[in-house]
Simulated assay, not measured.
Amino acid sequence: MNNLGAVLAAYGLDFSHVVKATVHLHHPGRDLAGFNTVYETFVETPYPARTRWVRSWVTSSSRSTWSLPAER
Rank of each mutant, 00 (worst) to 15 (best):
K20T: 11
S64T: 10
K20D: 07
G34Y: 00
F35L: 01
R52Q: 12
H24I: 01
H26C: 13
P46F: 05
S60Q: 12
H26F: 06
S56Q: 08
R72L: 04
T51P: 00
R55E: 10
A10I: 01
H24D: 04
L32V: 11
V54L: 09
S64M: 08
F15I: 05
T41P: 08
S62H: 11
A9D: 04
R72F: 02
V38L: 11
L32K: 07
L13N: 02
S67I: 13
S62V: 15
G34W: 06
A21T: 15
G5S: 14
K20N: 09
F35V: 03
A49M: 03
V19E: 07
A9Q: 03
R52S: 12
T22L: 06
A9T: 06
V18S: 02
P48E: 02
T59P: 09
H24S: 12
S64E: 11
A49N: 03
A49P: 04
P46A: 09
R55K: 08
S62M: 02
T45G: 08
N3P: 05
R72H: 06
A21F: 04
H26N: 09
E71W: 05
E44G: 08
S56I: 10
V58N: 02
R50E: 13
N36S: 13
H26L: 12
W66T: 09
R63D: 02
A9G: 03
L32I: 13
R55S: 15
V58E: 00
D31G: 01
E44L: 02
T59K: 09
S64D: 08
R63T: 05
H17W: 00
H17I: 00
E44R: 15
G34D: 02
V54G: 06
F15D: 10
H27N: 15
T41V: 09
W53D: 02
S16A: 08
P28I: 03
L25V: 03
T37D: 12
H24A: 15
P46M: 01
A33C: 08
M1L: 14
N36P: 02
H27L: 10
A49E: 05
T41W: 04
E40R: 10
T37M: 04
A33R: 13
P69W: 00
R55D: 13
A9K: 12
